[in-house]
Amino acid sequence: MRISLIFFTLLMGLLSLPARERPLSFVSDPSFMLPEETRESLDLFLRTRSHKTQSEIFLLLEPLPEATADESKAILKDLGHSWSEKNWAIIAYRPGQINPPLIVAGGPLFKEVNPSAWEKEITTLQDLSLQSWQNTPDIDFLARKLSDSLVFFSQFKSATIQSLTKNRNEEFRKKYRSHKSKKALILTISTLSLLALGLLCFLSRKAYLAKRKMFFPETNWTSRLGAPHSGGSAAAQRFTPPSE
């Protein structure tokens, strides 16, 4: 009997591998744990929420292939990532599995806000759901409250975006300033480059002119005073001798 149960559980586990497709309903209750009215009401509630917000809650009221809570949580996280691109949470109630019967895993949104706060939220609501008057956890209560929390945290992110925006604005201002200073830097460098180029051109021209050889035109002249080279063209000036 036990072996059959184990085999059945393993088989169920194999059948519900992490690669399963996203369910059509937000409440997956193959064994009809919830009353039909509750199931439909909850499904409608979660569906409406999903349409209006960026938050989705999935209920899996079925056994999971792995036994330990951490392994189950890991599986739920894989499922959540593959099922939803929004903020998500999956509640799995594992009938027949004792420790613990209720597993909740949440989506990746909150790493931007406060992941520990989210984990704490899940723990608190799980705890309260177990304190219901029913002999089983109040899944309906947990799903609705978790949905509220999910919506709040996701919106809270938006609300804190005001501060994030402020930070972003600060960053933008810094960036703008740095962009402005970059612009100023580029302008300065361009100006200096132009000046340097101008100076270089000037110096090059000066060097060219300095190296350039200049020739006077040849002319016909007539010698005089019997002098072969110089005809007496001169300039003369007197100067005051330096004082002794």
Binding site: K52, F152, Q155, A159
Partner: peptide
């Protein structure tokens, strides 16, 4: 009322007291 807003209660209230605005529905 902005969704996602958390109203901190006055300091005299128990620690951590506050109101969460979930949203319009």
């Amino acid at each position: 009322m902005i969704a996602g807003t958390y109203w901190h209660w006055p300091p005299q209230a128990p620690a951590g007291s506050g109101s969460r605005h979930i949203g319009l529905e």
